[in-house]
């Protein structure tokens, strides 16, 4: 299977500080790839490089097997890469439909085409089996944390995206809502999307992911199938960069 998104030998520095060292990262369609690592390991930087917010210093960026240049968030969106940030970026004073189409409204002439947008939003939420919201015309301010996360994810999916990157989607949620969001994450992958899940929570990672990519101090310690590793091994990879014959030896990939 060819990865839909593949990074090879990515280096990224901010001034004198090199944050990413020779990172390789592959994301496959129909799979959930968990991106794990301790604070400061470079997860956010890697995601921002993928999303075009930070240009990469060197390395290859392949999308569907072809090398591409991603210099801005617009380029990434054009390829079909959507990032759902931790703080969601929803407007409380707008309703669900308005939020989902924010900045990309459908128009007829200069008039907003509310009906088409409402239909598309309803269809997208339907396809994700989201039925917890009372009305898609209710303000986002009245939604629970889980419902907001759902709207943010639905917003990302609306644009026929191929890769959806979720930055700690369950960090602020309760037990039931976490389950709800994880179920949604799994469903996205089952629909054929490539999903990247950034998480600190090992239970979440093992519950939904197919692959685990562990970053350690800016290097990719290992990218393995979830079924091939144990909980403890992943924790070791995160905290020390190696576990048995997996991971880095003397700071270099084995």
């Amino acid at each position: 299977m060819t990865p839909v998104l593949e990074l090879r030998g990515i280096d990224k520095s901010f001034g004198p500080v090199q944050v990413l060292h020779d990172v390789a990262f592959s994301v496959y369609p129909g799979e959930v790839t968990a991106l794990v690592g301790d604070n400061g390991a470079g997860k956010s930087t890697l995601v921002k490089c993928v999303g075009g917010i930070h240009p990469i210093d060197s390395g290859e960026y392949l999308f569907e097997g072809k090398p591409v240049q991603v210099g801005s968030p617009r380029d990434a969106a054009g390829l079909g890469i959507e990032i759902v940030y931790q703080d969601l970026a929803l407007c409380d004073n707008l309703d669900i439909v308005q939020n989902m189409f924010l900045g990309r409204e459908h128009k007829r002439g200069i008039v907003l085409d509310e009906d088409t947008m409402e239909e598309m939003a309803a269809r997208t939420l339907e396809s994700l089996s989201v039925r917890t919201v009372k009305s898609i015309r209710q303000h986002v301010s009245s939604l629970s944390g889980g419902q907001r996360q759902t709207v943010a994810i639905a917003k990302a999916v609306l644009w026929n995206s191929k890769v959806v990157i979720l930055d700690e989607p369950t960090a602020a949620l309760g037990v039931a809502q976490t389950a709800q969001v994880l179920e949604l994450v799994r469903r996205l992958a089952d629909q054929g999307l490539a999903v990247v899940l950034i998480s600190h929570n090992m239970n979440d990672v093992f519950a939904v992911s197919d692959r685990i990519a562990a970053l350690y101090l800016g290097r990719m310690a290992a990218q393995v199938k979830t079924s091939d590793v144990t909980h403890a091994q992943v924790v070791e990879l995160i905290t020390s960069g190696r576990s048995g014959d997996l991971g880095l030896t003397n700071g270099v990939p084995a």
């Binding site: 970026a89 409380d92 707008l94 900045g103 128009k107």
Partner: peptide, 23 residues
């Protein structure tokens, strides 16, 4: 009824969200 108006509300609600939406 126009996207200009919609974007005004969006900026007032959350300038950061509006900026990320490309406004």
């Amino acid at each position: 009824r126009t996207s200009f108006g919609r974007h005004l509300y969006a900026v007032g609600g959350s300038a950061e969200a509006a900026r990320r939406a490309g406004i």
